[in-house]
Amino acid sequence: MKRIFLTLCLCAALLASCSPVDLNAPMPTFDTGVDSNAWVQIPAGEFHFGQHEDIESTEAYEIMITDVTTAQYADFLNMALVDGYVKVDGDKIVGFYPGDEFRGVKHEEKIEAGDWLFIPLNDPSQRIKFDGKIFTVQAGYENHPMTNVTWFGAWGYCEYNDSRLPTEIEWEKAGRGEDERPFPWGEEILRENANYYSSRDPFEDMSSFGSRTSPVGFYNGQMYDGYQTVDSASPYGLYDMAGNVWQWTGDVYEGMHYRFMRGGSKDTYDMDLRLWVRNNATPTYFSPGVGFRCAR
């Protein structure tokens, strides 16, 4: 009897592990009041870069105060499709990239000039829909960060809008300011500071679909249906510089095809939200936990 009971428990656990995930489960919608079209000026000068606080400096530049949203990306695709800047290729949206210099370093892969994947359309967690003519956004995700976008797709968006992806140094300075803080808002992290793995925000359900993105600028000190956030803007007023989605940066390093991401995401532990933490992937990689913002 005991054996049967144990076997049944084990089978139940296994079945629960294989249960399908409803990627379109209902989600609360909130207006954060943060303008995703706003940019902020970062002054020229030195700052503490990286875990070991090396001194680096930048020229003055502007950077978006939030990640690019799905609505903004859909608008871009609609215009870019008309302009011929992007093309529909089966279940993919592709666009031209001029390629990188190939040096033949170990593990390096060629990135040649040509059409590269911007976004997939057939991924079940893709929030941008295409009816053959118009790109639209799945209801409720309009003010969420654009995800399932490759580095090429991020690069293309910024270039189309007369901007560029921030370099890693620019990205970190915008998030950190001039002191040595590990998080955009300061020294320590609370669950109400950012959207990270099991941060108990209103968008996650760890028993089924897990963590989901939150609207850009969500962690601004507002209360949403009883959920109180802490204002977690960076010293320069940028939101979501820690958590929510990893953000592609623009550096193309010699002898390496990998592209780097910063900021941690809804799927990572708090340690990955520290401003100097780096992640990287091939430029064709896309994920529901990766987005971007532009600089100019």
């Binding site: 991924d123 967690s125 760890m206 089924s208 799927d267």
Partner: peptide, 16 residues
């Protein structure tokens, strides 16, 4: 398993 659909599997594995 894809990233978007991994949570139930992750939960089961974590329990184990």
């Amino acid at each position: 398993v894809t990233e978007a659909e991994q949570q139930p599997l992750v939960n089961g594995l974590m329990y184990a």
